[in-house]
Amino acid sequence: MVERKFSEPTDEIVQLEPVEVRRYIAFTRWNHWFTAICFIVLMLSGFAFFHPSLYGLTALFGGGQMTRWLHPFVGIALTVSFLGMFFQLVHLNIIRREDLVWTRNIKDVITGHEERLPELGKYNFGQKTVFWGMFWLILALLITGVMMWYQYFPHLVSIETRRIAILVHAVSAVLIVLVFILHIFAALWTRGTLRAMTRGTVTGGWSWRHHRKWLRELARRQRTKPAE
């Protein structure tokens, strides 16, 4: 049996002519899109309270009171949903040596000279940055968010601590939106990526170009399956 190091058990080459590879099973995709919807609701409702010029966004949720009530509950939903994603994806998102080489040669990534870069497993450093950025920022937003949740935790922390919590929450929110923009941008700019989260599969060419070590391991895993 080939050691599985760069792929998930559910990743599989599903077709040979042309090559098509399954990257995400349906459960992961549903999990992802539920998290995404929560994120968008949180972003819009959070922006409404972030800057007066965006307060009009509260109309999307039924007014200021409703938005204030809704935002933290959606935050909890996102946290639970993200945790599901986290446990599915964390093993292959650990930073590896080739990620440092990849980062050092980020210029070749942007100019599309991936042949000059080390071969990568299922995720590159950019994708891992999004993963860990989301993780740490959601953690910060969760902790500070509970401190600010006046309706249910009015006396959890002192007023001085809550002031800091609100500031950290606002700064973390801006950072996570930047990560979100990077995430969407990278998914669109790297053509052929989006279908991984819609159909669940990517083409062989995409896998060869961006995640060759992943593709190679999948092929080897399928080679050593018991002969029919």
């Binding site: 002519e17 599309g112 790297t190 053509r191 062989g204 190679r216 092929a219």
Partner: peptide
Amino acid sequence: GNSVSQEDEAEARELVQEE
């Protein structure tokens, strides 16, 4: 954008079949 070429697809086929 960063697009996958026909050559990439051919390389992929070759790699997969070799493996």
